[in-house]
Write a protein that binds this DNA or RNA. Structure first.
Lengths: 115, 115
DNA sequence: CTTTTATTTAACCGGACGGTTGACAACGGT
DNA sequence: ACCGTTGTCAACCGTCCGGTTAAATAAAAG
């Protein structure tokens, strides 16, 4: 273990099943059975995925009788977004270059040389 | 293999060494030796990290003589940011609730009951 | 042509990951 | 008190991951 929080979040998000679970939790709390229903996968497998998400801080879990509902913990995702934000200027710049190129060829300069 | 592109990107970002490499590439292209210099790690290890980043589309590589410089491929990161964007409203809402709570206790309602 | 520099490939290793099955714990209903 | 429901724990399995070292490749330099 001993991984830093950001790595844990990225690792947790690097699995389509876990991302689908997060998407489902956008509609509100859900039990393990509810969450497992769409997947062709055993219940313990889903339980493990939930534990990964919980350790990454992306979800939290409650206790109601024998149910342990999971809910979204959105501020954790904000941490990821904040990290990404440092790179925004790079993809903005890329997009601007692409945009300029597209406008150029539309003006009848198909080679984009500008001459 | 056979992993979807988004999972590949998240997995690539889930390693502090690879994130450090990306940060370094913000300052411009760099050779493998340049990139390896800050790390207590063999050269093949760094080469493998670069391959992971390349397969995820986060970087691309050129050929200049015996050097194979790596450069940032920022639009790939935008793909990740776009996925995250779906969740923004959730952490915005969380932040608003926190904000309201902080304003409340500042007005002399330390229990935050509002009564 | 040989040497040097830059990088990748191959083979290997330990540990983490994603899944399984089977046993077990916790609780509500009857 | 028992049963069904809900969920986790433990052990296991095959694969992937992050690292190593040693050898191979590519191209420049002497």
């Amino acid at each position: 273990m001993e991984t830093d929080p950001l790595s844990a979040k990225f690792a947790a998000l690097a699995d389509p099943t876990r991302r689908a679970i997060l998407a489902r939790l956008c509609e509100g709390e859900a039990s393990v059975n509810d969450l497992a229903e769409p997947f062709d996968m055993s219940l313990p497998a889903v339980s493990k995925h939930l534990k990964v998400l919980e350790k990454a801080g992306l979800i939290s879990r409650g206790r109601e009788a024998q149910w342990r509902p999971a809910r979204l913990e959105p501020m954790a995702l904000k941490g990821v977004a904040d990290w990404l934000e440092h790179y925004r200027r790079f993809w903005d710049a890329s997009f601007d270059r692409l945009d300029a190129y597209l406008k150029k060829i539309q003006k009848g300069d198909p080679n984009g040389t500008g001459h």
